[in-house]
Design a protein around this nucleic acid. Structure first.
Lengths: 241, 241
DNA sequence: AGAGATCAAGTGATCTATTCACTTCATGAG
DNA sequence: CTCATGAAGTGAATAGATCACTTGATCTCT
């Protein structure tokens, strides 16, 4: 009654993760085929499939049709964003920015105190080539904030910021150009970078707070695209195939 | 080639989430049966099952054998912990505490500034009956830190702290009694509660930092139980059934 | 009439057996 | 040497069925 509380596919998923860990498989390495796994565990392929789907949802494994199943980035991750996020509303976007405004300044301060070498280099490259492409700007901005968190040397902090920005991604693609001032972003990133490079934690914290406050204010003054959804009552038939 | 990049089960999962949202289903509400869903979407039950497994992994739905499929707590969640966490090491426990030490003081300050009514009540109840049971102590402590984050009024901050503590849970069950000073925890919680009630953000921040620093130091001085695992090479045959 | 045992329907869990689609790579023709 | 061909391996999805569990209603005995 103690260990059988979990479903078969759940235990299977745990076992597969255990195999990945014990065999020291990293991102991109191939797993055994579904059929092999089914044989090894004495279950059938649909059951293995369910277990792998669970793992796919959390990014632990990735399917490549006709090729195989591979280890994904989620294998070493502890924090993550929900893969099935709700539609964003004005309130949710604002809540997200305010959460970042609370958390990221402290992360920036930690980054300035530690200054992990590799991450600081990432920081520089992300800050430098930020203005060139039109669509790449957001990606670079994400990269900057993630690299900033990584510079703290604490991967949990990096994962937290990554997860927050992944939540933002859904919103951002729709309303990015409304309040995203690339030039300003770039300038503020450079200031933060300097503070980190100097090991000035207080300045890094303050500049990050200012940076995110500017974004928050831009969200506040921008008008939101779709403020009244609920026109579709989920007709599944048509929209699927 | 644009939208067909996702697998069928992935699109199915999205559609099911959409049904839950458009029909305003909340935690505990029942979904249609697997067979019904299969009929509605024109696929077979194993396919529906894969989609539901994805959603189960993130807590969006819950299975109850013989009863049905129900909406789970993950439906409104944006941040979460990986359900298949790696085994904890001394380094990972330390990293976790240090991440909390960076993030939670800022959250406490935000909580003191906002002071959401309901959450403050939770805070009081969590702080009051914290010493009574032996096993409940940890649960109450979790409750306290989550309620503290909830008092900020920002559900994303609550979810972030919840996720961090969920990561901790795995470690904690093994080494809790080693460095968990319940009396001290309780006293420090009460101090933080007072600061929040007074709306003193600076004090709340400082006290939370002190509180977590004490925990970190306890971890530092404690000896870690299993510092050399890797004795099992994942023999799947025996350990499964 | 009420309390408890029993049964049947609905549902999830899982299996067996197949078919289809995609990728890969080695083979062979040009 | 290059490029097309095709076989093999793999994931994707289906069909149909069986077993186990939960639930609620019915039925029985008191």
């Amino acid at each position: 009654m103690s260990r059988s509380e979990l479903s078969l596919s759940e235990r299977l998923a745990d076992n597969i993760v255990e195999i990945i860990r014990s065999e020291r498989l990293g991102r991109g390495d191939a797993l055994a085929s579904s059929r092999d796994l089914a044989r090894r565990f004495g279950v059938t392929t649909p059951t293995v499939r369910e277990a792998l789907r669970r793992l796919e949802a959390t990014g632990v494994v990735e399917f490549r049709h006709g090729s195989g199943t591979y280890v994904g980035p989620g294998i070493g991750r502890r924090l993550m964003a929900n893969p099935h996020l709700p539609r964003s509303t004005r309130a949710s976007v604002l809540e997200l920015v305010e959460a970042r405004l609370v958390l990221e300044p402290a992360v920036a301060a930690a980054a300035a105190n530690v200054r992990m070498a590799e991450a600081v280099q990432d920081l520089e490259s992300a800050a430098s080539n930020a203005l060139l492409p039109p669509e790449e700007s957001l990606r670079q901005s994400v990269h900057f904030h993630v690299a900033l968190a990584a510079a703290s040397g604490n991967s949990l902090l990096r994962e937290a910021v990554e997860a927050l920005l992944q939540v933002r991604a859904r919103d951002q693609v729709e309303i990015r150009h409304r309040y995203n001032d690339r030039a300003r972003d770039h300038a503020e990133h450079l200031e933060i970078l300097d503070a980190v490079r100097d090991g000035d934690a207080a300045a890094a914290e303050r500049l990050t707070r200012t940076h995110l406050a500017a974004i928050r204010d831009a969200v506040l003054t921008a008008d939101f695209p779709a403020d009244e959804p609920d026109t579709d009552l989920a007709l599944p038939e048509g929209g699927l195939l």
